[in-house]
Design a protein around this nucleic acid. Structure first.
Lengths: 157, 157
DNA sequence: TGCTTATATCGTAAAGATTACTAATTATTG
DNA sequence: CAATAATTAGTAATCTTTACGATATAAGCA
């Protein structure tokens, strides 16, 4: 099924309407699925198709999408919230590689933690609904390019 | 060795001084090692032993401690940065369990990801210097207490 | 000791991100 | 069509963090 129609149904199921503004925002997210857009970035992109849209509407819509578990709100330490589309099944099980040299952020869509989550249930009595796993380090191809300095510690892990 | 003296040496090694203000802040962090204090919380606590201290000094000192890899800056999605003491060896390899019902935040100090990190080096050419792993879910003992509602989605994973 | 220079602090102003709020607009219901 | 509810726009207010100028403290040296 068309993904916009699918999301439209999810809105309707919770008595929300997919207004033109909201649809324009959803389309921007779908068109930039690989990125982790900030509110400001969504705002800029959506203005191309909907020039009149207000910033507060972007905030409200992203919050709503989050409530519906369509997107995930994340923070990578650059001072702004970023949003990541969840899969159709609403799970959000992927990992990030963040390179200290080039700043690249790569996504890995496997779920490597099934064993650990079983162990948490067994040993800690804790059942996992979601997780977040980020690795910080360097790509071998970036080695020797020099480090951007220790200021990177200012970013949030 | 005394941990404050140890940290004092680390300051000196980088030509920084452990001023009375900085020492008061370090002591608050050591006395509350189990917590993940925010700047505001550190500020409140340190005022007991150093009532005259300014907020900007707390920001600057925590940034400095971060630069020296003595603390780790983190974000758990409540809108403020939080700080976590690293071990004496400066590594920061532990995990968090975050309960959606009671809000408890538990730390697990094992390193469960050595295998995955080997795999990243092998398959992705990426060498890990640090990682972050948070699990969201519920403790079995919290089940049935009712959920605080889906507003939790507003928090950053 | 006194002078000079660098470092650190204080208090607050400024910046940036997010939320709150009011009026206006659009849709829905009867 | 009138009345009610939902949504949006625009902006003000809030909150966290950073920047800045003045003051204070410490270190180096004649």
């Amino acid at each position: 099924m068309n993904r916009v129609a699918n999301i439209s149904q999810q809105f309707a199921a919770q008595n929300y309407k997919l207004t033109p503004q909201r649809e324009a925002i959803v389309r921007v997210l779908l068109d930039n699925e690989k990125d982790h857009l900030s509110v400001e970035e969504v705002y800029m992109l959506v203005k191309r198709s909907y020039p009149h849209l207000g910033l507060a509407t972007v905030y409200r819509t992203l919050e709503l999408l989050c409530e519906l578990h369509i997107v995930e709100k994340m923070n990578f330490g650059d001072g702004v919230a970023r949003y990541d589309l969840r899969g159709d099944d609403h799970v959000h099980m992927h990992h990030h590689l963040i390179c200290s040299v080039c700043g690249k952020l790569e996504e890995i869509k496997d779920d490597w933690l099934a064993d650990l989550e079983a162990r948490l249930a067994r040993e800690y009595g804790f059942s996992v609904t979601d997780h977040r796993l980020d690795f910080k380090g360097t790509y071998n191809t970036c080695k020797g390019n020099g480090c951007k300095g220790d200021k990177e510690c200012r970013a949030v892990s």
